[in-house]
Amino acid sequence: MAKGVWIVAEQRDGALRKVSFELASAARKLADQLGEEVGAVLCGSGVEAMAAELAKYGVDKVYVADNAALEPYTTDAHATAVAKIVKENDPAILFLGASAQGKDLSASLVGKLATGMATDCTDVKIADGKLCAIRPMYAGKCFGEIVIDAFPQMASLRPNVFPIVECAKAGAVVKFDAGLGEAKTKVAEVLKEAAGKIDVAEANVIVSGGRGMKGPEGYAILEELAGLLGAAVGASRAAVDAGWRPQADQVGQTGKVVSPNLYIACGISGAIQHLAGMSSSKYIVAINKDAEAPIFARADYGIVDDLFKVVPALTQEVKKLLA
C-alpha cells in the first residue's frame, strides 16, 4: 500500500531553491493529516549537506543521490534517479515545484511512473484519504479539482503560493544509487542572464508594462520602481510581440502565469489572455489613462491617469517609505 508524502527538492548551483521549502511545508501539512512521513528526494553532486535544511521544514527522511552525473540538471539523469527511488519506496503522494526544472522533471516522471499529475497547483488537500489538487486551467479562466487513480498521486505546486512553515524533523539521510545508464542528454552550455535579474515566475512583486509604455525606452521608469521593490519587470503580449521586451518576461496565457503578492499593471488594457495570466495575484494595481480599460475590473487599486507621471511619482513615494 502506497504510503508517505514525498517531494523532489530542487537545488541549483549548490543551494536549495525556495520552492523546495514550499514543497516541504505543503507535504508536512498533508502528511500530518494522513499520519504519515514526509520524504524528500535530493539529487546532485555534493548535496548531502542540504538535507539538514530540508529537515527544518518538516522532512523526516531525505533520500540523497550524490553523483557527478547529476550535475548540472538533465531530464534523463534526474528522472531516472527519482523514478528509481520512488518505485522502491512507493509513496502515496509526490510533489515537485512547477518551476522550469520541476515542470520538465515532473512530466518525465509521469511517463516513467505511468501515473497522473495535476500541474501548477495553487492548493492541495486530502479528501477521503486521497489527494485533491486544485489548479488553474485555461490559464486561470477556470479551476479544476484533480483526483488521481494511480500511485504516486503527483502534483507540481506553483512557486510562491504555498507558505513556508518551519517544523523541525529528523531529516535522516538515506543514500541511494541513482542507477544511471549512459547519458542520453547533457548540458552543452549555460547562458546566464544579467546577474540579479528576477524571473517573473519567481517574483513576489511584478511591475508590468504593456502597449501604453509606447516603446522599449518607456520601461526605464518601471525598471527603477522594480529595483526599489525587489520586483521583476513583466510585459504584456503586445509589448513582447512588438519586440520591446524579452519573451521570458511575458505574462499571460501564452506567456507565464504568475501569482505574486503584488502585480502593478502599467499601460496594460487587460486583454482576456493577459488577465488570465495574472488574476491570481494577491493584490493588483492598474495604472492606465483609459478609465474603461478591462484591467480596472480586476484591480484592487486603480489609477486613471498618465502612467508616465504616476509611476515616477510612485517611485518617489516608495523611496520615502523605504528611507
Partner: peptide, 20 residues
C-alpha cells in the same frame, strides 16, 4: 486515464477594487 478533473469551478471572484 490516470487522473481526472473531478470538478470544474469558476475562478474565485475578486472583491471590487477602488479607483484612487
Amino acid at each position: 486515464s490516470k487522473s481526472k478533473v473531478a470538478k470544474f469551478t469558476p475562478p474565485p471572484a475578486r472583491p471590487p477594487g477602488k479607483i484612487l
